[in-house]
């Protein structure tokens, strides 16, 4: 091993720590020392496996802004780290940072992990950030995750656009605000979008998931 190679290897951990410290430095100045150390650990771990560490810092800052206890903040950051990892794995092979964030958000609100994988199968080459956001909103509105996922995935498979999915969520939201049952509103609005789409292929990715 040459001196030059030794020098390069020695730089790697230094650079990692340096970047991690740089990220932690963006934490709110009032952050508790314990929180700072815990977030630093999570950031280093996230970076080592290619997760977007800025989301962890944002979560910590959210907890600080909301005056949460240090334990709650560190627990929330650690839980987010796990959700980001699950989302990244389920949305493989090359999820964007927005997709991972949207996937982690969906997981937080109770969307099962396997649904993320099925949505990726439905749209392997397009961003899932908005469909995941729509699904998250529908689930948060009180719709069963499987039911909402089936509808969204069917629409994606049939070629629905992001705008159509967004309109669906907006319409359901308005209907629920007007007193409709969430499931009835989703059925009605989904039929409306379906009527604008070409006929379905033989089977959707959701009803017949591909085996590995």
């Amino acid at each position: 091993m040459t001196l030059r190679r030794l020098f390069l290897i020695s730089l790697v951990p230094c650079a990692t720590v340096s970047v991690a410290h740089g990220q932690v430095a963006r934490l709110d100045a009032t952050a508790d020392a314990g929180v700072r150390r815990a977030v630093e650990r999570e950031v280093i771990a996230a970076r080592s496996i290619g997760l977007p560490e800025r989301l962890l810092i944002a979560k910590a800052n959210e907890g600080i802004a909301k005056r949460a206890t240090p334990k709650r903040i560190t627990d929330a950051v650690a839980a987010l780290g796990k959700r980001l990892q699950v989302a990244r794995d389920q949305l493989a092979p090359n999820p964007s940072e927005d997709e991972i964030a949207a996937g982690a958000d969906a997981l937080y609100l109770g969307v099962p992990a396997h649904i993320l994988k099925k949505m990726r199968a439905a749209w392997p080459n397009r961003s899932l950030a908005l469909p995941l956001g729509v699904l998250t909103e529908l689930v948060a509105k009180g719709l069963p995750a499987d039911r909402a996922a089936r509808t969204v995935t069917d629409l994606m498979t049939r070629g629905a656009t992001n705008v159509q999915l967004y309109s669906l969520a907006q319409s359901v939201q308005g209907d629920v605000a007007a007193g409709w049952a969430p499931e009835a509103a989703l059925d009605l609005r989904a039929r409306g979008v379906m009527s604008l789409l070409p006929p379905a292929p033989a089977a959707s990715a959701f009803t017949n998931p591909r085996r590995p």
Binding site: G63, A102, L109
Partner: peptide
């Protein structure tokens, strides 16, 4: 683009979700 979260408050009171949005509770009880 993507999912975002917002809340409002009056005179330093509790943060609330705007009425027409879907409410979510965060890890901090907010």
């Amino acid at each position: 683009p993507g999912p975002q979260r917002v809340a409002v408050r009056i005179n330093g009171s509790q943060w609330r979700a705007p009425a027409n949005l879907t409410k979510v509770t965060d890890e901090f009880g907010g």
